[in-house]
Design a protein around this nucleic acid. Structure first.
Length: 421
RNA sequence: GUGGCUGUGGUGAAGUGGUUAACACCCUGGAUUGUGGCUCCAGCAUGCGUGGGUUCGACCCCCACCAGUCACCCCA
């Protein structure tokens, strides 16, 4: 149907835009505090960037990308996330030349061909942060703190921060092998999904919700027991920094991020009341990504938060600010002559910084008054034939219903004074 | 991609195989032809997601599709 937007998309209507602005303003303020600079990358990139960056075998790349050939025969993909694109931009624009650690943030639409449900859309919005060029665990901690403070500053409670380390190219293969050994004799009992995971990504078996798989995975080796010295030390320091900062977290050895590029630190923030789509933010370290995309080996950390989910959570908690949609003044005019005078008055009001409106449909005075009331006008300026003759305006205070006549050349000053207090 | 539930006007919704599709809100107009918020009155779906089918006849039955929703999956 012509009058239906594509599946999984949502219009953000005037009455909710203020909520988005509220959240986005919080984001910009917070990022300024932390020294992260906004970056805006294109909504689409070469398909290959995501294939290489996110990983060929991930669900996102395998079945969720909006890809198409453009008229020049290039394969283009609507960005399903922004990390790979931020890294591409970092390399293309040589942002590494400016500072030791490039600290970037973004807000924007992402696209994933998924089945829509509560908190999941095909076009959705993320706020994310990337710190490129720092291998210090303090950077991990800073990024996590930013994510936590973002949600807390909006007033959200009942947040749960889960933390894990997924190792690095040195220790992950060791762990992988151990896991496969552990599950080798249990394969028959695993669900079909997990049987294929056994070869491709055995760590995901730990994540399975199937009762039988959960039972079988009890006692499985944990990644944190297999970390190499470097990863171990890094992980310990991240925890230490968080503890020092008073950030509460839970270690979750089963936390596995969905995208291939993660190394070492992985974290996720959940807001349980959201139900099935309770992950509000997630991220971690991705030391291999920059090199994968063609740059020099560069350590990096980041996270992304789903703004629809943040809004959903805020709404659930009644934390969304009411929008102020009042107008300072509404001009009511009766008759053609008055209309003309009213219109020029309207212009003067606005020039003076007084928000003002009037009716353009030639309705009765009663109707115009109703309209003024609905528009939440603080004052109504009435211009009828009498007023025009006398060069005055009837000024009515809608709160108190008091009204007085004011000379037309005085009206701006009078209103300015009134509106200020 | 899989499964459950749902789909009536701008909104929330009632409804029965058979003439005019309740009710409420919103909106519009009116109640001494220059005054809002309260009250009263009136108007506001030739159509019941779309397309087929069953039937003498379907909004109510069947099928498909589309959409919404919840869950799986995955993730933000």
């Amino acid at each position: 149907m012509l009058t239906n937007g594509p599946r999984g998309t949502k219009d953000i209507l005037p009455d909710t835009v203020s909520q988005w602005n509220y959240v986005e303003n919080k984001i910009r303020g917070l990022c300024r505090l932390y020294g992260y600079k906004e970056i805006r990358t294109p909504m689409f990139e070469h398909t290959e960037l995501f294939q290489r960056g996110i990983g060929e075998t991930t669900d996102v790349v395998e079945k969720e990308m909006y890809s198409f050939l453009d008229r020049g025969g290039r394969s283009i993909t609507l960005r399903p996330e922004n990390t790979a694109a931020a890294v591409r931009s970092y390399l293309q624009n040589k942002l590494y030349a400016d500072v030791a650690i490039a600290k970037l943030f973004y807000i924007g639409s992402m696209f994933r061909y998924d089945r829509p449900q509560a908190g999941r859309q095909r076009e959705f919005h993320q706020f994310g942060v990337e710190a490129l060029g720092g291998d210090n665990p303090a950077v991990d901690a800073e990024v996590i703190m930013l994510a936590v403070q973002f949600l807390q500053s909006l007033g959200l409670k009942e947040l749960q921060l889960s933390l894990n380390s997924v190792g690095c190219p040195k220790c992950r293969p060791v762990y992988r092998k151990k896991l496969q050994e552990f599950f080798a004799d249990k394969l028959d009992g695993l669900c079909s999904d997990c049987q294929s995971r056994y070869e491709r990504n055995p760590m995901r078996i730990l994540d399975c919700k199937e009762e039988s798989c959960r039972k079988l995975s009890v006692g499985a080796p944990e990644i944190t027991d297999c970390l190499c010295d470097e990863c171990q030390e890094h992980f310990a320091k991240v925890q230490k920094y968080l503890l020092h900062a008073g950030i509460r977290f839970e270690l979750d050895a089963r936390l596995v991020r969905g995208l291939d590029y993660y190394t070492k630190t992985a974290f996720e923030i959940q807001y349980a009341p959201l139900g099935a789509q309770s992950a509000i933010a997630g991220g971690g370290r991705y030391d291999g990504l920059v090199e994968e995309i063609g740059g020099n080996s560069t350590p990096a950390v980041g996270f992304a938060a789903g703004l629809e989910r943040v809004l959903l959570a805020l709404d659930k908690q009644g934390l969304l600010p009411a929008q102020d949609d009042s107008v300072d003044a509404f001009v009511v005019a009766l008759g053609d002559e008055a209309q003309a005078v009213a219109f020029s008055l309207l212009a003067k009001l606005r020039t003076a910084g007084i928000s003002a409106g009037m009716d353009f449909t030639g309705r009765s005075m009663k109707a115009q008054m109703k309209q003024a009331n609905k528009a939440n006008a603080r004052f109504v300026l009435i211009l009828g034939e009498d007023e025009v003759k006398e060069s005055v305006v009837t000024l009515k205070n809608m709160q108190t219903s008091e009204q007085q006549k004011v000379a037309i050349e005085e009206i701006i000053n009078t209103l300015c004074a009134e509106v200020k207090d």
